[in-house]
Amino acid sequence: MFRVRRPALSAATAATLLLALTACGGSAGAKSSASSGSSDLSSVTLAVGDTGWARAQAVLKLAGLDKTPYKVKWSVFQGGDLQLQAVRAGALDVASSSEIPPVFAAADGNANFKVVAVQKGTTLQQEVVAPKGSKITSMAQLKGKKVGYVKNTTAEYFLYELLKQAGLKWSDIKAVPLLPDAGLAALNGGSIDALASYGNSIIAAHGQGATTIGSGADILSGNFNWEASDKTIASAAKRAALADLLARVNKGYAYIRNGHETDYAKVTATTTHQSVSEALSQYKAGEQQRPTTIGLTTKAAIVSEQQVADAFDALGALPKHLDVSTFWTDVLNSDLRKALAS
Results as ranks from 00 to 15, higher is better:
4 V>M: 14
4 V>K: 13
4 V>T: 09
5 R>G: 15
8 A>H: 04
9 L>P: 13
10 S>P: 09
10 S>L: 10
12 A>V: 15
15 A>R: 09
16 T>P: 03
19 L>W: 05
24 C>R: 10
25 G>D: 13
28 A>I: 08
33 S>P: 04
34 A>W: 01
35 S>L: 15
36 S>P: 12
41 L>F: 02
42 S>K: 07
44 V>P: 03
45 T>S: 08
50 D>S: 02
51 T>Q: 10
57 Q>W: 12
59 V>L: 05
60 L>G: 06
61 K>D: 00
64 G>M: 01
66 D>K: 03
66 D>G: 07
69 P>R: 02
75 S>H: 07
76 V>Q: 13
79 G>Y: 00
81 D>M: 07
83 Q>K: 06
85 Q>H: 07
89 A>N: 02
92 L>C: 04
92 L>E: 01
93 D>S: 07
97 S>C: 14
104 F>A: 05
108 D>G: 07
115 V>M: 12
115 V>E: 13
122 T>A: 12
125 Q>D: 10
126 Q>I: 03
134 S>M: 06
135 K>P: 06
141 Q>A: 09
142 L>H: 00
146 K>V: 00
149 Y>S: 14
151 K>H: 04
153 T>H: 12
162 L>A: 14
162 L>P: 11
173 I>C: 00
174 K>I: 03
184 L>K: 06
184 L>P: 04
185 A>G: 06
186 A>P: 11
189 G>I: 06
195 L>Y: 09
196 A>E: 08
198 Y>C: 08
201 S>F: 10
202 I>N: 03
203 I>A: 08
205 A>H: 02
208 Q>S: 14
209 G>E: 07
212 T>M: 12
214 G>S: 11
215 S>W: 00
215 S>R: 05
217 A>G: 02
219 I>K: 09
219 I>Q: 10
219 I>D: 06
220 L>E: 14
220 L>I: 03
223 N>F: 11
226 W>H: 14
234 A>D: 07
240 A>D: 13
240 A>I: 05
240 A>F: 05
243 A>T: 08
251 K>I: 08
254 A>S: 13
256 I>D: 10
257 R>D: 12
258 N>T: 01
259 G>W: 04
259 G>N: 02
260 H>G: 03
262 T>P: 00
262 T>S: 04
264 Y>P: 01
271 T>G: 09
272 T>Q: 14
279 A>L: 01
280 L>H: 00
281 S>P: 05
285 A>M: 09
292 T>R: 11
301 A>Y: 15
304 S>A: 15
307 Q>N: 15
307 Q>P: 06
309 A>P: 13
310 D>I: 07
310 D>K: 13
313 D>G: 11
314 A>R: 11
317 A>Y: 00
320 K>D: 05
322 L>D: 12
325 S>K: 11
326 T>Q: 10
334 S>P: 09
339 A>G: 15
340 L>R: 05
341 A>Q: 14
342 S>R: 05
